[in-house]
């Protein structure tokens, strides 16, 4: 087991290093956006003095390297700074203290909503995709296999908003089962929240299922020519058992990796679906903040997205390592 622990520690270290590099990239990218918050909020008629005053107050006049380390130091301690847009310039103008809404306050509820949506989607999509993949491998080249392929591929190749509107038409307008708008608020009971989340979750399920299903199918079929699969058949095992107990455990690594990529997508890439269903997730907040150059929020969102990608891929890495009996049970 020692070697496994060592590998996991190595991966964790590499993950942290990646995150550090990504934080630099984010900072550079966000700060090279044309225009800044002061210009954006004051509009075209701004006097240079007013722009300069706001810049000074929110610290945009400091050199970039200083700002980066201040931001990084804050981020490490969980302080992502204060949102420019929510800062109360009228009351604080000229004073040194800044008592606006912090970025954490602003992002936390949105992130919770996004995680809830991603969680619900994952709970539907992952078992569905893996089961479909196993069945497609079992009945490969049959009508079922082809139908499952065509269905998942067409849902992944249609634009997300289109899939969303079709689902609204079917499940909210023609058969009013779910609400077409996802009104989520803080003290909502769980079942109501689940119901309100259902349509976006189903839309996202249709979007992410294809990758996972096709990888499951391909990874299993790839193994079917192995001698140990032939052995299982020659022991008179049923085709389903051959695939589930003999092929699947050896096919886990690539499947886990594709699942991780798709879960990361569910956290970071769902802004279109959020807009269609007016779902208060982190994607919308992110896009709005970019529009008004609210740099602290944009940077925090980017960092969260990057962390989600790195963390999920790290988990996938570790799980694939653990799925290998050679590493779990060294000689």
């Amino acid at each position: 087991m020692r070697s496994v622990q060592l590998i996991i520690l190595q991966r964790l270290g590499l993950g942290l290093l990646t995150l550090l590099v990504v934080s630099m990239v984010i900072f550079i990218a966000v700060n090279s956006l044309p225009g800044d918050f002061a210009q954006a909020i004051l509009g075209q008629g701004a006097t240079p003095e007013a722009v300069e005053a706001i810049r000074q107050q929110i610290g945009l006049d400091k050199p970039p390297v200083t700002r980066y380390f201040e931001w990084l130091g804050g981020a490490v301690t969980g302080d992502m700074g204060v949102s420019f847009a929510q800062a109360n310039f009228a009351s604080n103008f000229g004073s040194t203290s800044n008592t606006g809404v912090t970025v954490v306050d602003q992002i936390a509820p949105r992130l919770a909503n996004t995680m809830f949506l991603a969680g619900v989607t994952a709970l539907i999509a992952v078992p569905l995709a893996v089961t479909l993949g196993i069945l497609a491998a079992l009945y490969r080249n049959s009508v079922f296999d082809k139908a499952a392929n065509i269905f998942t591929l067409s849902s992944i190749s249609s634009p997300e908003f289109f899939v969303a509107y079709i689902l609204i038409l079917l499940l909210a307008v023609l058969n009013p089962i779910f609400p077409s708008l996802s009104n989520i608020f803080n003290d909502m009971p769980f079942d109501a929240r689940l119901k309100a989340t259902m349509l976006p979750a189903l839309t996202l399920t249709l979007v992410v299922t294809a990758h996972m299903m096709r990888m499951t199918r391909a990874a299993i079929i790839n193994l079917l020519a192995s001698p140990y699969i032939e052995m299982a058949r020659l022991k008179g095992m049923s085709p389903l058992r051959v695939i589930v107990t003999h092929a699947l455990p050896n096919a886990l690594a690539p499947i886990i990796n594709v699942i991780a990529l798709n879960l990361a997508y569910l956290i970071t890439g769902v802004v279109v679906v959020e807009v269609v269903f007016v779902y208060p997730g982190i994607g919308q907040l992110f896009v709005d903040s970019v529009k008004i150059r609210d740099i602290p929020v944009v940077q925090a969102c980017c960092l969260i997205f990057a962390a989600a990608y790195i963390l999920l891929n790290l988990t996938a890495d570790i799980l694939s390592i653990l799925s290998n009996p050679r590493l779990r049970h060294p000689k």
């Binding site: 001698p227 032939e230 052995m231 020659l234 008179g236 107990t245 003999h246 009996p325 050679r326």
Partner: peptide, 20 residues
């Protein structure tokens, strides 16, 4: 198969399932 007729393969290393 397996019950009345059984098979012993050339490479046992490849014919045993590595996961079990």
């Amino acid at each position: 198969l397996g019950s009345r007729i059984a098979y012993v393969a050339q490479s046992a290393a490849a014919s045993f399932n590595p996961a079990h």
